[in-house]
């Protein structure tokens, strides 16, 4: 037991070193813009750059749209599968895991070829159409996490009983979903939403290939041309990701406990 603990501390210490070094390194580098002393100049330059503000806002809006569409798509589906189509669950699991197996670059390549200006659905023909396409692409990327989170959340509540109770009080499907099911899986939905936010905000390949002015391509561009600003951007991006995960932790405290598992 005691030797175990020494090894455990060793592994954890090594891991902390590996993960802390790049973070410290980046932070230190981001402060070195002024020659003689540490300064926040790099941050000032980045935050003051109008393209930073524009692309960041664009990605934030994209993330919010993705979350809204994702929730509208995933919650009713996961609910319906739990309630009426339990034998579909393996199929749904397979479908929602596919985006982890098919690389995003392949998916977006398919979009470009399938929805180009000469196709039956010329989404890439207009800026708005491309935005919508990109947003659907993000929904696909978020699908594994979103579906997982919501399905786990639904497991913690008794879907069938809640539905019957609501129906016996005369509620229709929309009311049931919006007033009964959604509040009960709110924590799961929020967790999925924050994760989606973290994924979308820095996403590069889809936005770059669809030529949208998103935050990811902006960061890449800045990185190719500047020295210290990218480090500052990396620190900012890390803080955003960290903020999303911290929010997941915070909302998880309010999750209903899943029923005791029987072994």
């Amino acid at each position: 037991m005691r030797t175990n603990r020494i090894w455990s501390w060793l592994f954890v210490a090594l891991a902390i070193a590996y993960f802390a070094l790049p973070l410290i390194g980046t932070f230190e580098f981001s402060l070195k813009m002024r020659r003689a002393a540490y300064s926040l100049d790099a941050y000032a330059v980045v935050l003051g750059d109008p393209r930073f503000q524009q692309t960041f806002m664009y990605s934030v809006l994209m993330a919010l749209a993705t979350i809204a569409v994702g929730v509208l798509l995933v919650v009713p589906t996961a609910y319906w599968v739990r309630l009426k189509l339990p034998h579909w669950r393996p199929f749904m699991e397979f479908m929602t895991l596919l985006p982890l197996v098919i690389p995003p670059i392949v998916i977006v390549f398919g979009y470009i070829r399938l929805y180009n200006t000469s196709s039956w659905l010329p989404l890439t023909g207009s800026a708005m159409g491309t935005n919508v396409l990109l947003m659907f692409g993000y929904v696909v990327l978020a699908l594994p996490y979103m579906y997982r989170a919501v399905d786990t959340g639904l497991r913690a509540i008794d879907v069938a009983t809640l539905t019957e109770a609501a129906q016996s009080l005369g509620a229709g499907w929309v009311t049931i979903l919006a007033r009964v099911i959604l509040p009960n899986v709110a924590v799961a939905v929020l967790s999925g939403a924050f994760l989606t936010f973290a994924i979308v905000i820095g996403e590069f390949v889809m936005a770059a290939l669809l030529s949208r002015p998103a935050f990811g391509p902006y960061m890449q561009l800045l990185g190719a041309n500047r020295a210290y600003e990218p480090a500052a951007l990396a620190v900012i991006a890390f803080l955003i990701t960290w903020g999303c995960m911290a929010l997941i932790q915070v909302v998880s405290r309010f999750a209903p406990k899943p029923p005791e598992q029987l072994h």
Binding site: G25, A231, A237, F238, T241
Partner: peptide
């Protein structure tokens, strides 16, 4: 959770700034 999602462009910057 944070680090597994800290992929992509900023990760590259971090490693350039470190290694």
């Amino acid at each position: 959770g944070v680090a597994s999602n800290f992929a992509g462009v900023p990760l590259a910057f971090a490693f350039l700034a470190t290694f």
